[in-house]
Amino acid sequence: MSTAVKNELRVCMLSVKYNIMREMLNKVTFLTNILFMALNNATFIVQWVILFSLREDIGGYALRDVMLLWGLAASTFGLAHILFARAFSLPDLIINGKLDAYLVLPKNVLLSVLTSQTSVSAIGDLLYGLVILCVFSLSIGRFFLFVLFTVTGAVIYTAFALLMGSLSFWFVRAEMFAGHMTSSMVSFATYPDGIFKGAVKFLLYLVIPVGMAIYQPVHIMMDFNAGRLLAVLGYTLLLSAAAVFVFYRGLRRYSSSNLMEARG
């Protein structure tokens, strides 16, 4: 690994560490945020247990599969918001000219921006996902796949937020559209893909990337398929490259403002 890459990663890790340290200033709030997020997610288990007491199969999923889906969705969301929370508020940085602080530093702008904020409650999501995996469908192979797909899912989710957020470089008020698109990804990620048909399914694979972030990984964990695994990895790389390209194209249109906040 080159020194430049090592230094980039060192600064990113320091940034995440300092973000978490900031959140830990108030220990009670820090711990309750994590705990209540995990509990909030857990309430949905009750909903699914009731639904599966009425039907054995929902969209081709059993209770164990839905829990796996939920676990992966939660851990994916969690990891993305622990490491790259700023991707989800990118329009605010663009519209209010808050990218200046990152542009005067000799580091990769995108990485510096993405890692400049951390959501503490997302730690609860990540832990919840891992607990769900352990409780409902633990095996060594599945654990490693789960970790891999948490990473690819978090990258896809962040890249999608980055793509949508970057629209603010071109369009005024694009932040609402970006917000709807990224939150719809979370909403769809918690339902079995078997219940969606036709145009909606097309939407979930080609417009909102929940298909490759969550559905395919769950299918691979349920029934391993190397071809599908490669497709997920390839898609992750492609979407990330597209998001980075669009962000840097947009950055050329960045018009700044008289605000400067780096760590707010």
Binding site: R22, A101, E261, R263
Partner: peptide, 14 residues
């Protein structure tokens, strides 16, 4: 180097 009097560049909790 840049210094912006009205804008913090430092982490305030550190």
């Amino acid at each position: 180097g840049t210094v912006f009097g009205q804008k913090e560049q430092l982490w305030t909790h550190l």
